[in-house]
Nucleic acid binder design. Structure first.
Length: 428
RNA sequence: GGAGAGGUGGCAGAGUGGUCGAAUGUACUUGACUCGAAAUCAAGCGUACCGCAAGGUACCGUGGGUUCGAAUCCCACCCUCUCCGCCA
């Protein structure tokens, strides 16, 4: 959520920044809602004040045993108008909230303007793109050749966009997640967390998935008395982990909070029907190791650089080539103020593919979550939240398979993973 | 699944229809005392919104209702705890 004060004080400036990312702010509607809200609120509070003082006088009179019919008559007609106004006021406030809830974050000033992926800015490249003296196979051929990747059975069990791993590949997948978690906890100072995979709607609203992106989620309805309460399968650990601080005032000295979690992620992939249909690249269920930082507004951009570095470290240790891009204004996610993507080299696709996304949300999520700290003056202020994949496990597996393949279809185990593979050197 | 208890300010804990945004204790902040600290004493100490201000409004798990007036009464729901049963 954007800062309501900013909208009130400088609507045009906010609208201009939003237009950079292709969002057209309905300024007229906002001004209308605001002025309605204001006039009705003033009138409502006026009547409430009158009712309160009259009621108080009735109480005092009754205590003295005096007759109260005169005062009661005064108040008698207040009720209806007041009730109407109160209803109207809460309607308007709901409209205003609904209006605010679907406005994306404003991009940070350093974000390159642009419309699509094509306008993203390459920040740096790292590692060496491997050269093969044979025709490379993609991860599907490699995995199936090794007998460890079985999409046919996964489709039977669940449907399209699910995968079944077996044997060495399943272990390699687990090894990757373990390696990432250990690196972030032991070398980067993150606290490991184990979190719920089903969350409530408040949590989804807190991080910005709701109300706008319900169609991207798997919803799990649950009967609750008369009605239904919805759970949602998490699309990323960002949701449960960031919501740790929802409705919290975090003591200043505890900042920054750094959490890491390894979870499955569930995405409906509505609207991406034709894309990446082959292989593990785009699945309804995939594992991800996610880093989250909750920090002071003054240091959030330093934290973002650090967090990006933590994700890069994983790729460096795995010996994979990658590049870092800064997303342009039109390609950023709803809640983000600034996002770096890390793209890993995939030989079979002869290109870089996204494997991590690291974002600073500034106070956008914190405002939705009421996540605050108390500043030196004792006033509450909104925290800044950040997160980044460190990394997407499934795609990392794809990258390892493709980059470490040999002519006979076997896979060399990267040095850092050997301890997690019981010393195994080669997957065949 | 059955039975019971309970959800009030950072915490503890009063409050069963009126002067209650809420006693009291504790924590915290400031001042006094002190070389300093402890103890003691005094004052302050929730959040949001409207207003230049004075001041006003809302919030006692959530949502509805009754009433001139609700933390307090009624209804529904959610959550927590205890016991029994079942279960990884």
């Amino acid at each position: 959520m954007l800062d309501l004060q900013a909208l009130r004080n400088d609507l045009a400036a906010v609208a201009a920044r939003l237009s950079l990312r292709g969002y057209v702010l309905d300024s007229a509607k906002f001004m209308q809602l605001e002025s309605d809200r204001k006039s009705i609120q003033v009138r409502t509070q006026e009547l409430q004040a009158r009712r309160n003082s009259s009621s108080k006088r009735i109480g005092q009179a009754k205590a003295k045993g005096e007759d109260t019919t005169a005062i009661m008559k005064e108040v008698a007609n207040l009720g209806d108008e007041l009730k109407q106004l109160e209803t109207r006021l809460s309607e308007i406030q709901q409209e205003l909230n609904a209006f605010l809830a679907v406005i994306p974050n404003t991009p940070h000033e350093s974000v390159p303007p642009g419309k699509s992926e094509a306008d993203n800015l390459e920040v740096r490249k790292s590692g060496h793109i491997p050269i093969f003296d044979f025709v490379v196979k993609d991860h599907v051929s490699l995995g199936e050749g090794l007998g460890g990747l079985d999409f046919e059975t996964a489709t039977k069990i669940s449907g399209a966009r699910f995968s079944l791993l077996k044997g060495g590949l399943a272990r390699l997948h687990r090894a990757l997640a373990q390696f990432m978690l250990d690196t972030h906890t032991e070398q980067h100072g993150y606290t490991e967390t184990y979190v719920p995979y089903l969350v409530n709607a408040d949590s989804m609203r807190g991080t910005g998935q709701l109300p706008k992106f319900e169609e991207d989620l798997f919803r799990v309805p649950r009967l609750m008395g008369e009605g239904v309460e919805n759970f949602y399968l998490i699309p990323t650990a960002e949701v449960p982990v960031t919501n740790i601080v929802r409705d919290c005032i975090v003591p200043l000295e505890q900042l920054p909070l750094k959490f890491v979690a390894h979870t499955p992620c569930f995405r409906s992939e509505a609207g991406s029907y034709g894309r990446d249909t082959r292989g593990m690249i785009r699945q309804h269920q995939f594992d991800k190791v996610e880093m989250v930082q909750i920090c002071h507004p003054d240091t959030s951009y330093q934290s973002l650089e650090a967090l990006l570095g933590h994700a890069e470290t994983i790729l460096q240790k795995l010996g994979l080539a990658y590049r870092v891009v800064k997303l342009c204004s039109g390609d950023m996610g709803f809640s983000s103020a600034l996002t770096y993507d890390i793209e890993v080299w995939l030989p079979a696709q002869n290109t870089y593919r996204e494997i991590s996304s690291c974002s600073n949300f500034e106070a956008f999520q914190a405002r939705r979550m009421q996540a605050r700290f108390r500043n030196a003056q004792g006033k509450t202020e909104f925290l800044h939240t950040l997160n980044g994949s460190g990394l997407a496990v499934g795609r990392t597996l794809v990258a390892v398979l493709e980059n470490y393949q040999q002519a006979d279809g076997s896979i060399i185990i990267p040095e850092v993973l050997k301890p997690y593979m019981g010393g195994l050197e080669l997957l065949r």
